[in-house]
Amino acid sequence: MNEMPNNHMFLQADEEIINHEQFEDMRDLLEEDFADLIQVYLTDSQQRVALLRNAQQTNDNANGFEIAHALKGASANLGTTQLVNLSTQLQSLCRDHRISEQAELIENIATALQRAKQEIHQRLGQ
Rank of each mutant, 00 (worst) to 15 (best):
Met26Leu: 12
Arg95Trp: 13
Ala112Ile: 09
Leu83Gln: 02
Ala103Lys: 12
Gln82Glu: 01
Glu32Met: 02
Phe34Glu: 04
Leu29Asp: 08
Gln126Val: 09
Ala103Phe: 02
Glu15Phe: 07
Gln46His: 10
Pro5Gly: 08
Gly73Gln: 03
Asp25Leu: 07
Ala74Ile: 01
Val49Ala: 00
Asn63Thr: 14
Ala112Asp: 09
Ala13Leu: 08
Lys117Val: 06
Glu119Ala: 00
Ala110Gly: 07
Thr80Asp: 04
Phe65Ser: 06
Ile109Arg: 07
Glu3His: 13
Thr88Phe: 06
Arg115Val: 03
Glu101Gln: 10
Ile17Val: 12
Leu105Phe: 01
Gln82Leu: 04
Met9Asp: 14
Glu3Asn: 13
Arg53Thr: 01
His8Phe: 14
Ala70Glu: 00
Lys72Ser: 09
Asn77Glu: 06
Glu3Asp: 10
Ala103Tyr: 06
Gly79Gln: 02
Asp96Thr: 05
Ser92Glu: 12
Arg27Lys: 15
Gln114Thr: 04
Asn77Phe: 04
Gln56Val: 11
Thr43His: 08
Gln102Ala: 01
Gln47Asn: 15
Asn85Gln: 13
Leu124Thr: 05
Gln126Asn: 11
Leu52Gln: 07
Pro5Asn: 15
Gln126Glu: 11
Ile17Leu: 05
His97Phe: 11
Gln91Tyr: 11
Asn108Asp: 05
Ala116Cys: 11
Gln57Val: 06
Thr58Cys: 06
Thr80Ser: 15
Asp28Ile: 05
Glu107Met: 13
Ala110Thr: 00
Gln39Met: 07
Phe65Asn: 14
Ala13Met: 05
Thr111Ser: 13
Ala74Thr: 03
Gln89Cys: 07
Glu3Ser: 13
Thr111Leu: 13
Gly64Tyr: 03
Met1Tyr: 04
Thr81Val: 09
Gln56Leu: 03
Val49Met: 00
Ser75Gln: 05
Leu113Met: 10
Leu51Gln: 11
Ser87Trp: 00
Thr81Asn: 11
Arg98Lys: 15
His8Lys: 12
Ile38Gln: 01
Glu16Lys: 04
Ser100Tyr: 11
Ala50Trp: 02
Leu52Pro: 02
Ile17Gly: 01
Ala112Lys: 05
Glu32Asp: 15
Leu51Trp: 06
Glu104Phe: 14
Ala112Ser: 10
Ile109His: 04
Ile120Met: 07
Phe10Tyr: 11
Ser92Ala: 13
Asn77Thr: 11
Leu105Asn: 00
Asp44Cys: 05
Asp33Pro: 01
Leu51Cys: 06
Glu31Met: 11
Leu83Asp: 02
